[in-house]
Design a protein around this nucleic acid. Structure first.
Lengths: 187, 187
DNA sequence: CGCTTTCTTTGACATAAGTCAAATATTTTC
DNA sequence: GAAAATATTTGACTTATGTCAAAGAAAGCG
C-alpha cells in the first residue's frame, strides 16, 4: 500500500460529520475543455477535487508552456505555493476535457481544520505526500536521461501518455517535443 | 518576510510549556566532521535541528554522491520520505564540520503533536515549506541552464558556495564537476 | 614543515539534446 | 466530408554538457 492509499483510507474513515461539513463547505463546478480554473497572477483561493475528467497545471517560461502536473479522477488540483501562502502565483490550471470538480475555499478549509483535528492531520498528510512526489520527480531529473524518464512514465503512469498531447508530455519531462518524438520512434 | 521567517516567528511564539516539552523530548548530540547521522537503508527515526556547524544530505547513484541539501545553523535535517513513512531510505546525512544538533525522535514528536495542536500546525508549516522549496528547485531544472543555476545560487545562497567543495556543489546543481569548474572560470 | 591526499582546473574529444524548418498525420469544425 | 487547425515526425545542423585523462593547487597530517 502506498502513501496515497493510506491517505485515501484515512479519508474514508473520517467521521460522517466531518464528511458532511466538508461537503457543505464545497461547491460542485463544471468546466468545459480548455477552461482555466486558475490563471497566472491570481491567488489560488480554492482546492479542486477532480470528480470526473482530466486537467493539468502549467506555467509559462519564455512564451512556452511547461506542464508540471496532470490530474485524473480523484486528484486534488491546486497551485501549492499560491494556495498555502495565499499570494499570486505563476501557475495555470486548465481543464483538458470537460470536467467536474468539488471546489473548497481556502478559508473554509482553514476553519474546518481548526474545528476537526482529523482534518489538520489530513492536511499534514497531503503536504507530505506532495513533497514526497516532488522529491521523486527531482530524483528523476538528477539520475535519469530523457529516454529513461520517458520509460519511467511508460511504466508508472501509462494513462498519462494516452490522454495528453506529446507537447505537454515533453514539457513535463523537461525535453523538447522533437526529442520526445525521436525517443518514441526508437522504443 | 518569507515563509521561513513566518515559521520561525511561529516557533518563537509557542507557549513556554511547548518549548519545554520539545526540549525534554530532544537530546543534544555532537558529531565530528565526516560522521554520518543517517545512512542508506536506515529508517530516519529522528529529526536533527542543527545548532552549530554544517551538514549535508546525499544519496548514491551509480557510485556517485548526489548532494541534495546543505544544512546550516538552525536548519532541520532529516530524510523526508524515510522520516514520514518510517521506512528505510536511500539518503545519507553527513556532518561537513564538527556539529552540534538537537535530535528529536519521530515517536516523541508524534506524541507531542497530539498533545499540543500548535505543534501539529507547525508540522504542516514545515512540510509546506519543504514542498515549496522542492517546487523551486524543480522549477530551476525546468527553466535554467547549468550556468544560470549556478548564478542563482551565487545570488541566493552565497554561503553555500563558500563552505562546500565544488564536487558537492556540482552534484547539487545536477552537473559534472568539470562543467562547474568551466562555468566558474568564465564568470 | 614536507608529504600525501584531496580538490580544482584544463585539454581533447564524445554525446545527448536543442533548434529551425519542412513534411506528414491527425483532429476539429463548419 | 473538405478545409482548417493542431499535433507529430523527420532531417540537417548547432550547442551544452559529459567523459576521460592529466596537470596544478590547496588542505590535512604526521
Amino acid at each position: 500500500m502506498n502513501y496515497l492509499d493510506t491517505i485515501q483510507q484515512y479519508i474514508n474513515n473520517l467521521p460522517q460529520e466531518v464528511h458532511q461539513a466538508l461537503k457543505e463547505a464545497s461547491t460542485i463546478r463544471r468546466y468545459k475543455k480548455g477552461d482555466l480554473l486558475l490563471q497566472q497572477g491570481e491567488v489560488c483561493q480554492r482546492s479542486f477535487h477532480l470528480l470526473t475528467g482530466i486537467a493539468r497545471k502549467y506555467y509559462l517560461n519564455e512564451g512556452k508552456e511547461i506542464t508540471t502536473e496532470i490530474y485524473f479522477q480523484n486528484d486534488l488540483a491546486l497551485s501549492f505555493e499560491s494556495y498555502v501562502l495565499q499570494k499570486p502565483g505563476r501557475e495555470y490550471i486548465e481543464a483538458l476535457t470537460d470536467i467536474e470538480v468539488s471546489a473548497t475555499p481556502f478559508n473554509a478549509f482553514r476553519a474546518l481544520r481548526k474545528q476537526f483535528p482529523a482534518l489538520m492531520e489530513l492536511d499534514v498528510m497531503l503536504s507530505e505526500y506532495y513533497a514526497i512526489w516532488l522529491e521523486q520527480r527531482l530524483f528523476q531529473f538528477y539520475t535519469l536521461s530523457a529516454t529513461e524518464r520517458y520509460r519511467a512514465i511508460l511504466e508508472k503512469s501509462p494513462q498519462l501518455i494516452q490522454h495528453i498531447p506529446l507537447t505537454m508530455l515533453a514539457s513535463y519531462l523537461g525535453i523538447s517535443l522533437e526529442t520526445l518524438s525521436r525517443i518514441r520512434a526508437k522504443i
